[in-house]
Design a protein around this nucleic acid. Structure first.
Lengths: 145, 145
DNA sequence: TGAAAAATCACCCGAAAGTATGAGTATCAA
DNA sequence: TTGATACTCATACTTTCGGGTGATTTTTCA
């Protein structure tokens, strides 16, 4: 008897619902159609996304990595050796292969000043040639390899 | 009693459904809606296909100019520039920070010979200083970084 | 504010580096 | 054998480098 009641209730609900559908269809057709359209549009998109294998395009890019891209200066060594800012600048330009004259021009100082800086630099790096200075500095992590 | 209830319910539902179908048929709305649904389903699929950007997978092929493990000399460049064996030896010693005199001593040749070699070397590397030569050579993969 | 450190510049001198030119020897391929 | 190339060495000259010394000016910092 209980089951019967429940069934009847469900049936009534279903009828009500169908009736509602009917009502909507007869009175608000545009809305309904639009809803259907949207629902199926989304369904279509979803279906397409599910069913189509992702189009994959492989693009190969050759990257040349220079070992000097993540250079971290060893400040500790700099401090220990007592190398000043200016001296470091000179050192970097020396490492680039510039002559003292070119360095002087680039730093807007006289040739003599550059010589003084480089001399002190050599003393601190314990070398006596600019090429050795570059070697030593790279080894010590003062300038990038 | 249970069976009777269910049968009755089913019967009622069937009648309602037939009635509904009939109604739909007579108004032809369902067909229209179905058509809309199909159209928009297809439209959705089409849209999805159009809008899905091809998934681009960028594969970065990393080529180390000079891997930290082992140095491979770029023989090609050597040949292109016409750098001889002896000149290369001089170049390597220059890169080590040796003076022309030291190089002469190590290679058992005269200072003048070393000068000749280095001069030709500079010419081939298109530089005019030993420090620049070292820079250029390292960049070209002629000597290890 | 005053001492220390850094940066600037100058002059001298010898050593090293680099340029120019020429030339002898050895090797290898055509 | 000859021509090309690499290697060797020399002389002469110019430029650059590096060491030494000293000085002035800035900057930094206690």
């Amino acid at each position: 008897m209980l089951l019967y009641g429940v069934s009847l209730a469900g049936l009534l609900f279903l009828m009500r619902w169908l009736e509602f559908r009917l009502l909507v269809m007869s009175h608000a057709t545009e809305l309904y159609v639009a809803a259907i359209a949207v629902v199926f549009l989304v369904l279509g998109i979803w279906l397409a996304k599910q069913l189509t294998k992702p189009k994959t395009v492989l693009v190969e890019k050759t990257v040349y990595v220079s070992p000097s891209d993540e250079f971290i200066r060893n400040e500790k060594v700099l401090e220990e050796l007592g190398i000043s800012k200016r001296e470091l600048e000179v050192l970097e330009l020396i490492a680039l292969g510039l002559s003292n004259n070119e360095i002087a021009g680039r730093l807007f100082v006289s040739l003599n000043t550059v010589k003084t800086h480089s001399s002190k630099l050599f003393e601190k790096l314990d070398v006596n040639r600019r090429t050795q200075a570059v070697e030593a500095a790279k080894r010590l992590g003062i300038i990038p390899l």
